[in-house]
């Protein structure tokens, strides 16, 4: 796909994208490794391959006022929202310094400070909640927009459409984002979703919908800017179907036999979002040396977080009873 927008993007911005996406990639790889060592347990859904989606959207947003909510595939969103790698990793290992004091785990982390509202394990539930966050933005008149992320599989849940209707009816400032990574667990979109395409899923409610190349962070940013502007100006919700791909299995326990290796290799080799930015950088006379510097820095952040997540203590047993009610 030709990138007409390249010229408008500064080299500094490209370096930033590279850095943010690489942080997610390396963080997720480390998480996978710690899982293999038994330090992380339960469900753990990696975001590898999808980095451009959340990095592009965050770049388009106003993080001081805009809010984010997503599913259980949430580590990338948290890092992109500016949450600390240390706190996220420590939550993955179930330690007291994790964002939820070790009580939430991979699927359930939150940061009010960074406007990140979870981390939800029930497929589709975050979309109604996201519409409610849009309602709060509108009610308070704070100028914020909620970015509510879901998967392609989630886009079939009934409550998603109840939320679409209300959001359109009340012109709520929400950008609904379908991260179409082509599979909901082992079920391909073709086997699960009827209709002319997921970007049309809001048509019946008059919600404008757009298809976006999610392997291109610049395309995501551009589409995100338009969508956020529309929602922010009081015209109501927008739906973005961002086409992306997850390289790993659905969760750590998924052998991913429902797709062939060539398909994965094809995406990895020809569409990788991080490689793409790297090429833009070099085309704009960026330097290998600078990229190396970023890589080294990310490596150190990620290793530090892994170290931190193993040395942080388990929560005190008394934490069992805290936070049930206020």
């Amino acid at each position: 796909m030709a990138n007409t927008h390249n010229s408008k993007i500064s080299l500094d911005t490209l370096y930033t994208f590279y850095r943010q996406m690489l942080l997610i990639r390396r963080f997720e790889e480390k998480a996978g490794q710690l899982y293999g060592m038994g330090l992380i347990a339960g469900f753990c859904h990696l975001y590898i391959g999808q980095e451009a989606v959340v990095v592009g959207m965050q770049a388009a947003s106003k993080p001081e006022v805009d809010t984010v909510i997503t599913s259980y595939r949430d580590h990338g969103h948290m890092l992109a929202c500016g949450m600390e790698a240390n706190g996220v990793m420590a939550e993955l290992t179930g330690r007291i310094d994790g964002y939820s004091k070790g009580k939430g785990g991979s699927m359930h982390m939150f940061s009010r400070e960074k406007n990140f509202f979870g981390g939800h394990g029930i497929v589709g539930a975050q979309i109604s909640i996201g519409a409610g966050m849009g309602l709060a933005h509108q009610y308070k008149g704070d100028g914020g927009v909620c970015m509510a992320y879901m998967g392609d599989g989630a886009s079939n849940q009934g409550q998603v459409y109840e939320a679409f209707n209300i959001a359109a009816l009340w012109k709520l400032p929400v950008v609904f984002i379908i991260e179409n990574n082509m599979y909901g667990m082992g079920t391909s979109v073709a086997r699960a979703c009827a209709g002319p395409g997921l970007s049309h899923r809001g048509d019946g409610y008059g919600i404008p919908g757009f298809e976006v190349d999610g392997m291109d962070v610049l395309a995501v940013k551009e589409a995100g800017e338009k969508a956020l502007e529309h929602a922010r100006s009081g015209k109501g919700p927008v739906l973005l179907e961002i086409k992306t791909y997850r390289y790993r299995g659905h969760s750590m326990s998924d052998p991913a036999k429902y797709r062939d290796k060539e398909e994965v290799d094809q995406m990895r080799d020809n569409a990788d979002p991080i490689e793409r930015v790297r090429r833009h950088i070099l085309a704009q006379k960026g330097t290998e040396a600078k990229l190396k510097e970023i890589e080294a820095d990310i490596k150190s952040i990620v290793n530090t977080s892994a170290e931190f997540a193993q040395t942080s203590p388990l929560p005190d047993p008394s934490e069992l009873y805290t936070d049930v009610l206020i």
């Binding site: 347990a41 339960g42 939550e91 179930g94 330690r95 939820s100 004091k101 070790g102 009580k103 939430g104 785990g105 359930h108 388990l314 929560p315 047993p317 934490e319 069992l320 009873y321 049930v324």
Partner: peptide, 16 residues
Amino acid sequence: SVDVPLPYAANLEQLA
């Protein structure tokens, strides 16, 4: 089970 939502941390889960 202890009257709380089930915590993730290994030790707390065991206690719950």
